[in-house]
Design a protein around this nucleic acid. Structure first.
Length: 640
DNA sequence: CGGGTTTGACCGGCGC
DNA sequence: GCGCCGGTCAAACCCG
């Protein structure tokens, strides 16, 4: 950290200081109870009273689906932070949790016991429309009950009914067997997918660790900054390989020309410094904004040939966006040190988030267009539920305020450096560049949009833990590297099914109903993909306003999609379960202060994670709103 | 005094 | 057209 902290305090701006230990991603042991803020409800309610005219944002929406897989229906005590407690106690020790499924949970527990020999879980709350082929065994009880009642009768009719009941039972048993086979097949698929994802994750972690180790060695040698600079080492979030300036694979995303680029008049227009072959930098005048986003610059310097050849102009404009790479990591010091030199040029507070969003500009070279944003997530919306393979039953929801846990920091990088990078910066550069490259590579190669890429297939698989997640929606494709969790390969199969569903950043109109309506769709889609062991298939066209304003149609569409595939029973269970939707609605309503559905406090960058764990599944909503000392028109949360 | 931060003001995009 | 909001600017301020 350079001198002149300017009276910076941890409370006011913990982001600005350094100390971010990227090379030591710590394992995020779910969500510690101590992180729960007993006052969040009050705070949320307070926020809801404010005028919260929510709008779609231009910030990069981030749909994240970190997914964890639990491979059995048994409780994983080893990884459940609450496992030491009885199930009921575990549930009740959570201060701020809200059990929206108390009644339902009993059914779930009961059915869990009853169906102990099967892999399915009877969800009494499932709508009739969800009764898919996969839902076998679940009706055994009801059927048997009926049969048993029939057998009570005596006479010929009772014999006939008994025969009929036996026949039905045989059919059902056959169906159970079929579903068992189906489950085994799915398990194999998920296991395979887990392996793929884990390999990718390990590669990235190894890369990080290795480069940080190199960085440490370099620093330990006491070399000055100039000595540490690696020639032609560029951090190109756009797609140029970060670890080598020579690697100029034409994957760079075109700039946000499509109406997304911001403030064109302020751009100096001197972008020749970017991507210079010799790594030299044409420096602009002091303070001149180098964020020229012409096609020659950084993010969008190179248009993808495939993209141009296969997309229409409109599609191109809609798809070509400024890619961003977000890194979410735990930092013990709640600070960032990614090897680059940054100057804070602004701090902004978005609606409803007590955590400020800080804006930094790279100062390693004048005119470097790279900027970054750093903020803390706000909320973790945790939804616990049971999962027995395809059958998912939401147990209850809770929300914890992760803003208090300011060790999880989200940093979003934008642009590519126009100057050589020191070794200290290569780790982050490589990571983010790789992530962006994969993201964009997938987006370019997919016919279904960016979300359906091989990268996503490997990284967003439901059976995986959260490492890399992607942004599905406008304005900018965003890949998020979640370094807060670093599960071991052995843990992967035991980890709870976890979906992070980042809403567009923000789903500014995240009305309660909207969010509730969307979550099933999103979650269902994720589960759908889980079943298929395929990549995320969410359309990139899922604009924030779509999410925010077309909730009901989206829900219906999600239900239709979920119901379309017999393998997506889990999808259906979530997507169409009115209780689930209602629970989410209630949860979000409670968070935001649900009295004003149409005036909801914006939740920026909501990241929703559902974990299938008998005791500690979770849906995480991270709110990256921030409050600064800038013009604050609608801040409602009191500072912590 | 230089470099960084703070923070009120401003700009432009977007939704209504 | 208006207002909101994210992002940025730049003067004032702070600190070593």
């Amino acid at each position: 950290m350079a001198k002149g902290s300017g009276g910076l305090s941890i409370d006011s701006d913990p982001i600005a200081t350094s100390g971010f230990s990227l090379h030591k991603p710590t394992v995020l042991t779910s969500f510690p109870e101590e992180n729960i803020n007993p006052k969040w409800k009050h705070l949320a309610a307070t926020s809801a009273t404010q005028s919260m005219d929510v709008k779609a944002t231009r910030s990069p929406p981030t749909f994240q689906f970190p997914v964890k897989l639990i491979n059995t229906n048994e409780h994983d005590h080893d990884h459940d932070p609450d496992s030491s407690l009885p199930s009921d106690n575990r549930r009740r020790t959570v201060i701020d949790e809200m059990d929206f499924f108390a009644d339902k949970k009993h059914d779930v527990d009961r059915m869990t016991i009853i169906n102990n020999g099967t892999d399915d879980l009877k969800d009494s709350g499932s709508p009739a429309g969800l009764e898919l082929n996969v839902n076998t065994g679940l009706n055994l009880l009801t059927t048997n009950t009926s049969s048993e009642q029939s057998t009570v009768d005596d006479g010929v009719s009772s014999k006939m009914e008994n025969k009929r009941a036996k026949g039905e039972l045989a059919v059902l048993r056959a169906e159970v067997e079929r579903m068992k086979m189906e489950n085994l097949r799915l398990k194999d698929m998920l296991t395979h997918a887990t392996s793929n994802y884990n390999a990718l994750q390990m590669d990235l972690i190894t890369l990080l660790q290795g480069q940080n180790s190199h960085q440490k060695n370099e620093q330990h040698d006491g070399k000055n900054k100039d000595d540490g600079i690696v020639p032609r080492q560029f951090m190109d979030l756009g797609l140029v390989a970060a670890t080598g300036g020579g690697d100029t694979e034409d994957l760079s995303l075109s700039t946000s020309e499509g109406g997304r680029r911001r403030d064109p008049t302020r751009s100096s227009g001197n972008n020749a410094e970017n991507n210079n072959e010799d790594g030299t930098v044409e420096q602009d005048k002091k303070g001149t904004d180098q964020r020229e986003e012409s096609p020659d610059q950084g993010w969008g310097s190179n248009k993808d040939a495939r993209f141009n050849s296969t997309k229409t102009v409109d599609q191109t404009e809609a798809t070509i966006r400024k890619a961003r790479v977000s890194v979410r990591a735990r930092s013990e010091d709640a600070t960032i040190s990614d090897g680059c030199q940054w100057r804070k040029y602004g701090q902004k507070m978005a609606k409803g988030n007590p955590c400020p969003r800080a804006y930094y500009r790279c100062t390693m070279a004048a005119g470097c267009p790279v900027r970054k944003q750093a903020c803390f997530p706000l909320f973790l919306l945790i939804i616990r539920h049971h999962l027995l393979f395809e059958r998912i039953s939401v147990a209850y929801c809770r929300v914890q305020r992760c803003a208090e846990d300011r060790t999880i920091l989200t940093t979003t990088y934008e642009g590519n450096h126009s100057h050589p990078l020191p070794p200290a910066a290569t780790a982050m550069a490589s990571t983010t560049s790789s992530a962006a490259r994969m993201l964009l590579s997938g987006s370019m190669s997919s016919t279904d949009g960016p979300m359906n890429s091989d990268f996503l297939t490997r990284t967003i698989l439901p059976c995986s833990s959260s490492l890399a997640t992607i942004s599905a929606s406008a304005p900018f494709p965003t890949v998020t590297l979640d370094l807060t969790q670093n599960p071991s390969p052995l843990q992967l199969l035991k980890q709870p099914l976890q979906f992070q569903v980042p809403f567009p950043n923000p789903p500014q109109n995240l009305a309660t109903a909207s969010a509730a309506a969307l979550l099933p769709q999103i979650l269902g889609q994720a589960l759908h993909n889980q079943s298929k062991s395929s990549g995320l298939q969410m359309s990139q066209d899922m604009q924030p306003n779509r999410l925010g304003h077309q909730s009901q149609p989206a829900l219906q569409q999600g239900q239709q999609t979920a119901l379309a595939d017999s393998l997506t029973t889990a999808t259906s269970a979530i997507a169409a379960d009115p209780n689930f939707t209602a629970a989410l609605a209630a949860a979000i309503t409670s968070i935001i202060g649900g009295a004003h559905q149409t005036n909801i406090n914006s939740i920026n960058n909501v990241q929703t994670t559902t974990s299938n764990n008998n005791s500690n599944g979770n849906i995480t909503t991270g709110n990256n709103n921030s409050y600064g000392h800038n013009k604050i028109t609608n801040s409602s949360f009191p500072s912590d």
